[in-house]
């Protein structure tokens, strides 16, 4: 489903060249739940950003569902992200001015042919899936960290993407909340057959996934 070939990312300033990723080769199957682990600064998030098409590799190839992502223009990339990918971030990245339901609706705003009524219906369904039906009209500031992350998950799944990319989704949560979030992700993987790629520091959580990839200094070590 996802193929990375000789992936490399180099950050270049006037004086310094930093190799963030080097020679990454990876095959991820449909429906797989994969963890990426490694110490801070080893390139985990950078790799996730490459897979999520949020950043461009310096060299190498990203192929998703037989689409080689190369030289795509902004509009095509945006459409692809909107339809195929869902994101969950460590710091939630909710829009504080919007209610939970409006935050969750957001991906569908950029998808053509979905009425406001339909968006609202699907947002409420997604919120229900993460167990936050009673908080739909709340604002992010009124929620706990765990609840915020559930909103972020609802937002990631509302568009029914094939791939969910989670960047340390439990990093800002205590262990109980972390476990709750992990349970939701496992459920999505098993019941909805979503392919999930998760960056984590937590070996305990990583062990619950199908496969673990280790990175060190931008290189794949296993």
């Amino acid at each position: 489903m996802i193929t990375l070939k000789n992936l490399e990312k180099v950050y270049q300033t006037d004086e310094i060249e930093t190799v963030a990723l080097s020679n990454i080769n990876l095959e991820i199957a449909k429906g797989e739940f994969l963890s990426i682990m490694g110490p801070s600064g080893c390139g985990k998030s950078t790799l996730l950003n490459m897979i999520g098409l949020l950043d461009k590799p310096t060299n190498g190839m990203v192929e998703i569902e037989k689409n080689i992502i190369d030289g795509w223009r902004d509009k095509r990339l945006a459409q692809f992200r909107n339809q195929k990918l869902g994101f969950i971030f460590q710091s939630f990245h909710l829009i504080n001015d919007l209610q939970v339901v409006d935050n969750v609706e957001l991906p569908l705003l950029y998808r053509k042919g979905i009425s406001g009524k339909e968006r609202r219906k699907r947002a409420l369904e997604a919120i229900e899936k993460v167990g936050l039906s009673t908080r739909a009209k709340h604002y992010p500031a009124q929620l706990s960290g765990g609840q915020k992350q559930r909103v972020a998950i609802a937002r990631a799944i509302i568009g029914q993407p094939d791939i969910i990319l989670a960047d340390e989704p439990t990093g800002n949560l205590d262990s109980k909340m972390g476990n709750d979030i992990m349970e939701i992700l496992e459920k999505l993987n098993k019941q909805e057959k979503a392919t999930i790629i998760m960056v984590t520091h937590d070996e305990r959580l990583a062990n619950k996934t199908n496969r673990i990839i280790h990175l060190f200094d931008g290189k794949q070590v296993n």
Partner: peptide, 10 residues
Amino acid sequence: GIRKSFGATK
């Protein structure tokens, strides 16, 4: 960043 991630074009 979030809007772009979820499919907003420039």
